[in-house]
Amino acid sequence: MVNPAIEGKRYPRTSPYLVGREKLIEFANATMATDSNGETAPPTFPIVIQERSLKQVLTDPESQLDFSRVVHGDQRFVFERAIVAGDELTSELSVASVKSLGGNHLVTFNTEIFDATNKLVCTAISTLVVRGEDA
């Protein structure tokens, strides 16, 4: 279940996340990357930032998003530049679309990730499939 009325809704900017060298190494190791230097973030690291924005949607009573019925449909990261250690990142999520498909809902989020100078670093685009009650 998800409330279709959240389509177009923008959520507030998150508080800054300081990207640490050891965190990048930990993430690189967890994704089995062989060349982690702790300086440049692996390409899927922005999921950690997206998650902070997504939490706002999950805790928003208006969204009525039932996380126990959620499956990750697709994910994309478009980079203006790579994330590096020392970055202070904030993010802002908007609900791009809510669609119905065969008893399920598809919700697409755009999360823009900014650095400390307010420059766009990366846009994370994520579609969640919310399974219907009988699916």
Binding site: D35, P43, D74
Partner: peptide, 17 residues
């Protein structure tokens, strides 16, 4: 990433699950 010489060379990456 290894082939490209670093993560900074990946400018767009998307998948469907």
């Amino acid at each position: 990433v290894s082939w490209a010489g670093g993560a900074e060379n990946i400018v767009d990456y998307g998948v469907r699950f």
